[in-house]
């Protein structure tokens, strides 16, 4: 069967536990169904489809699923990642301070050109805020990455954040493609699939 999409991007959600990484992915309700069976075995990844500039983009999104409690995430987890959402909780100072550690962890383990984005989550509890928006912006500038405050509960900016990260990866991918395949006579390579070796991530899933 012909491919039903133009791009496939592998994304990771990274940050301290309890910052709301999991609920960032709930678009229509505050809470998950929380099935007994599924909670017991845990979730590996999710596939999301978005459309950008008329291109169909598949996002394959992994959550650290508790691994972050050990403060280190293994190289295997980062393998093949093209984008990383760094998430902290604006009502939790420590989760913000730890972003620096997560960035160091990423620099040590992930591919050097991985796109990163900083998300300050839970912006619907302004009265409990410990980290100002300005500090978030400042940190993002320091690392040269994009920043957004999101509320998973009110779905504020969550879709925008994924669109923004996907757009940056798409731009980078297209630039790389152009550099390696200069267009000849108007013919352009249409599809680029970085995770060609499917067995790679599947075997990774079993390790996790």
């Amino acid at each position: 069967m012909a491919k039903t999409y133009d791009y496939l991007f592998k994304l990771l959600l990274i940050g301290d536990s309890g910052v709301g990484k999991t609920c960032i992915l709930f678009r229509f309700s505050e809470d998950a169904f929380n099935s007994t069976f599924i909670s017991t075995i845990g979730i590996d990844f999710k596939i999301r489809t978005i459309e950008l500039d008329g291109k169909k983009i598949k996002l394959q999104i992994w959550d650290t699923a508790g691994q972050e409690r050990f403060r280190t995430i293994t190289t295997a987890y980062y393998r093949g990642a093209m984008g990383i959402m760094l998430v902290y909780d604006i009502t939790n100072e420590k989760s913000f301070d730890n972003i620096k550690n997560w960035i160091r962890n990423i620099e040590e383990n992930a591919s050097a050109d991985v796109e990163k984005m900083l998300l300050g989550n839970k912006c619907d509890f302004p009265e409990k805020r410990q980290v100002s928006k300005e500090r978030g912006e400042q940190l993002a500038i320091e690392y040269g990455i994009k920043f957004m405050e999101t509320s998973a509960k009110a779905s504020i900016n969550v879709d925008e954040a994924f669109f923004s990260l996907a757009r940056d990866i798409k731009t980078k991918t297209e630039k790389k493609l152009e550099a390696s395949n200069p267009p000849k006579g108007g013919h352009q390579l249409k599809s680029y699939e970085p995770s060609r070796k499917q067995t790679n991530w599947l075997s990774k899933c079993t390790i996790l």
Partner: peptide
């Protein structure tokens, strides 16, 4: 092909298989 799906969640592996769930509300399998 798993990428044919529009939105879908995959559980961790149990005996060489993964259970499928809703990507948004996680109901499943």
């Amino acid at each position: 092909d798993i990428y044919t799906f529009e939105n879908l969640g995959f559980s961790n592996t149990v005996e060489n298989m993964k259970y499928l769930i809703c990507a948004d509300c996680e109901i499943g399998p």
